[in-house]
Amino acid sequence: MIKFFRKIRQRLLTENKFSKYLIYAIGEIILVVIGILLAFQLNAIVKNRENSFEEKRILRNLSEHDLKDDIIFLDQLIDSANTTTQIMTALTGDKLDFINKMEAFINDFNFQANDGTFNEAVSTGTMRLIKSDKLRSLIFKYYKEVENNRFLSEQSAFVNNHEITGPETYEKVIGTAESFARYNITLPLPNLNLENLIKDQKFMGSLFSRMASLQNQISSWRRLKQNAEMLSKEITAELKSH
C-alpha cells in the first residue's frame, strides 16, 4: 500500500502536476490523521470496556463474597457474644458448667473483615474505576468503620478482658480444685464456692465490666452488619443499572 501511494506521488512530480500533487499530499495527510484518530478511538473503546469489566469484577467480589462473608461472620459473633453474656444464670447452677462458661466468657471476640478486594483495588488504583462517587464513598466509609471498630471497640475490650476480668477469673474460677478435676488432675487448690463468689465485690465488678464491654462490641457489630447490608444493596443496584 505504501509503495502504491509512493508511485502516485512520483508520477505526479515527473509529470509536473504540482497542484494535483499538493492536493494529493493534503489528502494523504488527512487520511493518516483519520487513521490515527480511529486508532485512538478504537483504543479508547477497548480501554473503556476493560475498565467497565474491572469495575463490575470489583463490585461483584465485594457484594457476593467479601460483604456476604462479613455479614455471616458478624451474625456468628453477635450470637456467640450474646450467649456468653448470660453468665449470671450459671452462678446459681452447676460448678463445672459455670467454669466452662467462664472460660468461654473470657475468650476474645474479634471481627476480621474480608477486605482483600478493597485492599487490592486501593493499592492498584482501580478503585477509581467505580463511576458512582456516592458508592465509592460508601465503600471507603464502611472499611473506615471496620478500622475504627478494630482500634476502639475491640482494643478496649481486649485490654478490659486481659487486665480486669481475665486475672480475676483465672485466680478465683480456673485456679480451683474443680477446674483441674475436669482433666483428672488432683491439686491442693481451694474449692470453688459460688455463694462466696457472688459476694466477692472485686470479682463481680470484673464480671460486669466484661459484660458491658461485650455489649459495646455487640452494638458495634450490629452497626457494621447494617452498613454491610446497606452497602451490598447499593452495589447490587449499581450492577443492575449497568
Rank of each mutant, 00 (worst) to 15 (best):
I2L: 14
I2H: 09
K3C: 01
F4R: 10
F4Y: 11
F4V: 08
K7G: 02
K7S: 11
K7N: 12
I8Y: 11
I8F: 08
I8K: 11
R9F: 14
R11T: 09
L12Y: 09
T14G: 05
T14Y: 08
T14S: 06
N16L: 06
N16T: 05
S19E: 11
K20H: 14
K20I: 09
Y21V: 00
Y21K: 03
G27Y: 15
E28C: 04
I29C: 14
I29Y: 02
I30E: 02
L31C: 05
V32D: 07
V33N: 03
I34R: 00
L38F: 09
A39N: 00
A39G: 13
A39V: 14
F40M: 10
Q41C: 09
K47V: 07
E50I: 07
N51G: 04
S52V: 05
S52I: 02
S52N: 13
E55N: 01
R60L: 12
N61K: 08
D66P: 08
D66L: 00
D66F: 06
L67G: 04
I72V: 14
F73R: 15
Q76L: 04
L77F: 02
D79C: 03
A81F: 04
T84W: 13
T89Q: 14
T92S: 15
G93F: 02
D94I: 01
K95E: 05
D97N: 12
D97L: 07
N100P: 12
E103P: 03
A104D: 11
F109I: 03
F109Q: 13
F111N: 10
F111I: 03
Q112R: 13
Q112F: 06
A113D: 07
T117P: 08
E120A: 07
S123L: 10
T124I: 01
M127A: 06
L129I: 07
I130C: 05
L135E: 04
R136S: 05
L138C: 04
I139T: 12
F140L: 10
Y143R: 06
S153Q: 08
F158S: 07
F158W: 15
V159Q: 09
N160C: 01
N160F: 12
N160V: 09
E163V: 15
E163K: 08
T165V: 00
P167E: 00
E168Q: 09
Y170Q: 03
E171M: 12
K172E: 06
I174A: 07
A177Q: 15
A181F: 03
A181R: 14
R182F: 05
Y183A: 10
N184W: 06
T186G: 11
N196Q: 15
K202V: 14
G205C: 07
L207T: 02
F208V: 04
S209W: 10
S209C: 09
M211Q: 12
L214D: 15
Q215L: 07
I218K: 12
S219D: 15
S220G: 01
S220W: 06
W221I: 09
L224D: 02
Q226V: 13
N227E: 14
E229A: 04
K233S: 13
E234S: 03
T236W: 03
E238V: 06
E238W: 01
